[in-house]
Amino acid sequence: MFKRQVTITVNGEARAVELEPRVLLAHLLREGLGLTGTHIGCDTTSCGACTVLVDGSAVKSCTMLAVQADGHEVRTVEGLTRASELHPVQEGFQEEHGLQCGFCTPGMMMSALALLERNPEPTEEEVRWALSGNLCRCTGYQNIVKAVLWAAAKLRPAGTGGVR
């Protein structure tokens, strides 16, 4: 009686699942769909480790019911790599040592992606502002900011400025 049927497009693929309304989107992704790249780091919508894109906008997936994603498009960290090619955001994090333990990284990258899709040429200040819903305990953020700027430079069309 408690279960319902929903269909969510996850990383471009329609996934039909049956679940209780109380199941959080983060739990559906991790447990139901096996997409464990989305992490859970707190109970209070504070840390942003679970950040995914819902219809292109960054959302803390621990603060959205999975049923609410019915009929919507969800992108997770697993969807960043296309045809085994890394997304520039991923490359940037590796190149600039933007991660240490890696736990906040997926959420951080999804926030970065949402920023760059809205603002392809952010300043350092805009990057810091856009990432301020994601907590990192390892890096001190300095290299994360560099990583996002690296990705922005790479994503810019050729001729408008290369990588740094």
């Binding site: 790249g37 992490h39 859970i40 960290v77 790599t81 590796q94 991660l99 736990f103 997926p106």
Partner: peptide, 21 residues
Amino acid sequence: RRRVEDARFIRGCGNYTDDIK
């Protein structure tokens, strides 16, 4: 040297305790 472990972390393929089923 760029980090070896990053390859899995940036793909969301880390293997943390809660990821194990």
